[in-house]
Simulated assay, not measured.
Amino acid sequence: MVEPNQSLKLFVVMSKAYRAINDYTNKFIQKEGINPTEFAVLELLYHKGDQPLQHIGGKILLASGSITYVVDKLEKKGFLKRVACPNDRRVTYAQITEEGTKFLEGIFPAHQERIEEIMNALSSEEKEMVIASMKKIGQAIPAK
């Protein structure tokens, strides 16, 4: 049997860890009545303010065709609204509503605690090392 090289092993370990973390946090989010993509859009709007619909996909790694569907669902739930740009009729912003803010403020602290709980398997120094390493890997990827 061929032993995988260290780079392949790292890739597999990182992939499995990411999947496990994602699954763990997504189960909590889904129990709250929204899917992870809806949560990501709300979190973006909560932390970064109004966003042009055209830019949301790139910021949360979602295909642009799916944004309309997700925004429609959040709008029906009363968590966000569309706001026309006063300077450019081609641009529409997504804006979190008061109801959306209250909802996110109700679940975000527990979500953040779950992430802290997972990441506390590492010391502060180890976290800094992993952050620096992941940035280095990301920056080493050739542009398209």
Rank of each mutant, 00 (worst) to 15 (best):
P86G: 09
P86C: 02
D88E: 09
R89K: 15
R90K: 11
V91K: 12
T92P: 02
T92F: 08
T92S: 12
Y93R: 00
A94M: 06
Q95P: 01
I96C: 03
T97Q: 05
E98T: 12
E98D: 13
G100L: 04
G100S: 06
G100I: 04
G100W: 02
T101G: 01
T101A: 01
K102W: 01
K102V: 09
F103G: 02
L104D: 02
G106P: 04
G106L: 01
I107Q: 02
F108I: 04
F108E: 07
P109S: 07
A110E: 12
H111A: 10
H111M: 14
R114D: 09
I115S: 06
E116F: 13
E116D: 12
E116V: 15
E116L: 15
E117T: 14
E117Q: 15
I118N: 08
I118M: 13
I118R: 08
I118G: 09
N120H: 13
N120G: 10
S123R: 03
S124C: 03
K127Y: 03
K127A: 11
K127V: 12
M129S: 11
V130K: 00
V130F: 13
I131R: 12
A132M: 03
A132V: 02
M134Q: 06
M134E: 06
M134T: 11
K135E: 11
K135P: 00
K135N: 09
I137P: 04
I137F: 14
Q139W: 07
I141H: 03
I141P: 05
I141A: 04
P142L: 07
A143P: 05
